[in-house]
Design a protein around this nucleic acid. Structure first.
Length: 569
RNA sequence: GCCCUCGUGGUGAAACUGGAUAUCACAUUUGGCUUCGAACCAAAAGUCUGCAGGUCCGAAUCCUGCCGAGGGCACCA
């Protein structure tokens, strides 16, 4: 509708059209949509805005889309949409309602979660996953072909540190002790912290870790190694980590098309940098490291190949981009990480722009906010983290407590517990704009009331419950008899496709969250005021149709957030 | 020291990217389940947007300067 109105205005003002906006009015008395075109145009041609608005209004004349056009305030033009428009759209609501075409035939590869093998899955990964999964679904709904990938670190100094500690722990008096095998995944997180500490504090340990790092770089994943070798320990831990992560992804509703291990892009990245070095894009710095002078572009210098001759994260990222492109020939590549990497990405993308401009052009980095503890930053280096799992478990406990007296089967309770908990967490992450941090305060950030995941789920469930009752009472939905005046609910449902588009264009799921929360509120108010299933009411079939449209819209929207709709809760 | 974010009722956020009377939720106070699910609804009170200037018909949003918080700045990812 917004575009429709824009077109109409364009037609009315001809070539004079300046850059103007058409907005959804937030105040009912200002109509459904409003535009500032007259204000901007007036400035340009030096006339009174209200006069200009009047002129435009005359030119638009009659249009069956609008029931009324008004000029208000300093010169806004307010459009009142005719009820027929809302009702026509209401009739079309189905599982595809909201589906767009703006990304039709576009191939998008999206990279998110990026958990590390040999480290625990912490809240940051949970955030990246929620954001990435939601964006993926939004892009798909907009018509894109989406490939979900997860770039997982399975190599590099961080891994070497963990492996070093694991080796140390599985030794007794200098020899490997079989009884200490195998290592649990929880120990891996601790192993990393331990290895990191040793790396900093002990020169000898540091040397050993660097040795291990080199060995890991040369591991052949297809080959078998002795369980007692560094390579063997490494492969075992790798296997365990992968399984552990797979479970979590499943619970969160993500199915990756491909898990790309860091080790796969190492050589590719190194080659790109070496070529760039010959072309003068990179240069040799102190100690023979290959660096990129970001200062030339207002950024900072970063090391791409370290003095040991090993590619760093930056080189690997170049390799990763090429790897992805070779495989998927994407039109757009989206990378979701925490915002602490924003500056890093600027430099890396700047370098990429020099060595592979086509890829850099198509790449978009999204830095999501970080989950912070009230007392400061979480760090896996110090072992001070909240794991994703422990958070989910904690929330599940609360849900269990809430539904313990409900008459539900054991299976139902299990499903509800899990889905409500995940929904609550996802909501709390997605409700604000992507870049801003969340202060992790357990009681406040994960809520079941008001602005919350369960609020959405509850409203949907309630609507479903009403529809079930309608079936029992044998009242069928119908648009034959429509009340004189339509309500806010019809209008709100109508807006859904525009909101989806807005979320897609801005890479911002929170627009959707805000909208769905409002939609749920409108339905709940409607529900409180109206008896929907009522044999004595001639409008009952229409109310049921409206409830049905609401439920479908809600379901479509929740799916885009990867929050599960529930029949019962 | 340099660079990048951000500062909005007591708390957490929003403001459709420069628009109309700054929204929403939590918490607080009050009212509503013999009637389709009260994880709900209704009502009250509470912010003129860190501070000081500037641009504009119009600023939470843009510019300048302070104050405060967070992040990043060569061999971690």
């Amino acid at each position: 509708m917004r575009d429709e109105i824009k077109k109409i205005i364009f037609k009315a003002v001809r070539a004079e059209a300046p850059d103007f906006s058409v907005d959804i009015s937030d105040d009912k008395s200002h109509g459904d949509y409003s535009t500032n075109v007259a204000l901007i145009l007036a400035k340009k041609i030096g006339k009174n805005p209200r006069e200009v608005a009047e002129m435009i209004k005359q030119k638009i004349g009659e249009n069956k889309l609008f029931s009324k056009i008004e000029i208000a305030g300093p010169g806004f033009i307010n459009f009142f949409i005719s009820e027929k428009v809302f009702l026509d759209s209401l009739k079309k609501v189905d599982d595809d309602f909201g589906r767009g075409k703006e990304l039709k035939n576009k191939k998008i590869i999206i990279d998110y979660t990026d958990a590390n093998l040999f480290k625990e899955f912490h809240i940051g990964h949970l955030m990246s996953n929620s954001v990435g999964e939601s964006l993926s679904r939004i892009f798909e709904f907009g018509g894109a072909k989406v490939k979900r990938v997860c770039y997982q670190s399975d190599i590099g100094l961080n891994v070497a540190k963990a492996v070093w500690a694991v080796i140390k722990r599985s030794k007794k008096d200098g020899n490997f002790d079989v009884s200490i095998l195998p290592i649990g995944i929880f120990e891996l997180g601790q192993a990393y912290a331990e290895g990191d500490l040793a790396y900093k504090n002990d020169e000898n340990d540091k040397k050993e870790i660097i040795e291990i790092n080199k060995k890991i770089y040369n591991v052949d994943l297809e080959k078998k190694y002795s369980t007692f070798s560094a390579e063997g320990r490494y492969l075992e831990g790798r296997e365990k980590s992968l399984k552990y992560l797979e479970n979590i992804y499943k619970k969160l509703g993500t199915k990756f098309d491909e898990l790309i291990p860091e080790s796969k892009v190492v050589d590719l990245g190194k080659k790109i940098v070496e070529k760039g070095l010959r072309d003068g894009i990179f240069e040799k710095g102190e100690n023979g490291a290959v660096i990129f002078r970001g200062e030339r572009y207002g950024l900072h210098t970063r090391v791409f190949i370290n003095s040991e001759g090993l590619p760093t994260y930056e080189a690997k990222d170049l390799g990763l981009a090429e790897f992805k492109y070779k495989k998927y020939k994407y039109d757009r590549s989206v990378v979701v990480t925490a915002n602490e990497q924003n500056d890093y990405f600027k430099v890396m993308l700047c370098a990429m722009d020099k060595v592979a401009p086509k890829l850099a052009e198509r790449t978009k980095h999204i830095g999501h906010g970080m989950m912070r503890l009230p007392e400061g930053k979480m760090s896996s280096r110090t072992g001070k983290v909240i794991t994703g799992e422990s958070l989910i478990e904690k929330v599940e406990e609360l849900v269990k407590e809430k539904i313990k007296d409900r008459e539900l089967s054991k299976e139902e309770k299990k499903e509800i517990t899990e889905k409500v908990a995940i929904g609550a967490i996802k909501y709390s992450i997605l409700k604000q704009s992507i870049g801003s941090d969340i202060i992790y305060d357990f009681d406040k950030s994960i809520s079941f009331e008001g602005d919350s995941g369960p609020y959405l789920q509850y409203s949907y469930t309630r609507a479903e419950s009403v529809l079930r009752k309608a079936k029992v009472e044998k009242i069928k939905s119908s648009f034959k008899k429509i009340p004189e005046e339509i309500t806010e609910l019809e209008k709100a449902i109508y807006r859904f496709p525009e909101i989806v588009l807005q979320a897609s264009e801005n890479y911002e799921p929170h627009f959707l969250v805000l909208y769905l929360t409002e939609l749920a509120g409108i339905f709940n108010r409607y529900y409180a005021k109206n008896k929907i299933v009522d044999k004595g009411d001639e409008f009952s079939p229409y109310k049921i149709a409206l409830t049905n449209a609401f439920a479908t819209t809600m379901k479509n929207g929740m799916k885009l957030l990867a929050i599960n709709p529930l029949e019962k809760m």
